[in-house]
Design a protein around this nucleic acid. Structure first.
Lengths: 150, 150
DNA sequence: AATATTAATAAGCTTAGCTTATGATATCTC
DNA sequence: GAGATATCATAAGCTAAGCTTATTAATATT
């Protein structure tokens, strides 16, 4: 039973394993048909209405092409809208559609619910500690990324 | 600059983001051409020589088909060997090839190096705390998985 | 002997990215 | 103002790390 834990408990594998389990938990449930990365985009656009795809890529630290694909999907579902910027007609400004607003709450709730599920075995204090440790790891890791930014 | 952190700091996104950065760091470097999940398989076979693909799937908590593909890749690189079990000729017993043994050290070192890289901003005590918290999350999450085990 | 179960695999799908090339615009330089 | 250069979005197609749904071969059950 606890032999199973012996596989290889380095940080790299620990986080990979957790993310695999998260992904498995993500899809189903409520009536909002959206993936984890689509949710990330949606929330980010909702928080930054009118952001360009380029800027969004910088903010999410993924390739502009990846943003483009994710926006394609969300636009296809009618959750996001691309509007051409009049001042610079190369850029597409992104907006959450009005009909989508109510879904945002659901998406946020789902993410919180899944997080809570995983954090269930930890005390409140431990959760804060964890968030702090992971946050520091993230800022450290993303601050030393080479280029691709902006 | 720290606006970038504001995206959405729930546990789900924190771990996803870290894993994305881990994957980007994984591939290159030393002379061992292997992916993260292949490494996971390789190490597990090395620690459990003669394990069947089925049993390995149970241990790694992934589908038998996924194991099959990963073993295909590793066998293609000559790092793993499938031997038919004489007693039950349906099962393939897995072994690390002799020429591969020396690579294992490299793979383990790489994983440790990447882990260390990410853990760099933490003190030794904090690292232990983190490992403990993530470990508990993992056992909790995988214990409530439905079946597929063993 | 006929049936059911199990181990592995073939085929093809999904998610979440990536790179490389191309088409529109904008901007900079002469 | 024209030509070169840079920038934003996107088309096309790749990789990694899974998945599901058959199918085949072998074993176990009845």
């Amino acid at each position: 039973m606890n032999e199973k834990q012996e596989v290889h408990r380095s940080f790299v594998f620990q986080v990979s394993d957790i993310v695999r389990l998260v992904r498995q938990n993500f899809s189903q449930e409520d009536g909002v048909d959206i993936t984890r990365s689509q949710a990330r985009v949606l929330i980010s656009v909702w928080r930054n209405p009118g952001i360009s795809q380029q800027a969004l890529a910088g903010r999410l630290e993924i390739a502009t092409m990846s943003v483009c694909r994710l926006v394609d999907a969300l636009e296809g579902k009618g959750m996001l809208e691309r509007r051409t910027d009049d001042a610079d007609r190369r850029v597409r400004r992104l907006f959450v559609t009005e009909k989508t607003e109510p879904f945002i709450e659901k998406v946020l709730a789902r993410i919180e619910a899944i997080s809570d599920d995983f954090l269930a075995p930890l005390s409140t204090g431990e959760r804060q500690t964890l968030e702090n440790l992971l946050g520091r790891i993230l800022s450290h890791a993303s601050s030393k990324r080479t280029g691709t930014d902006q």
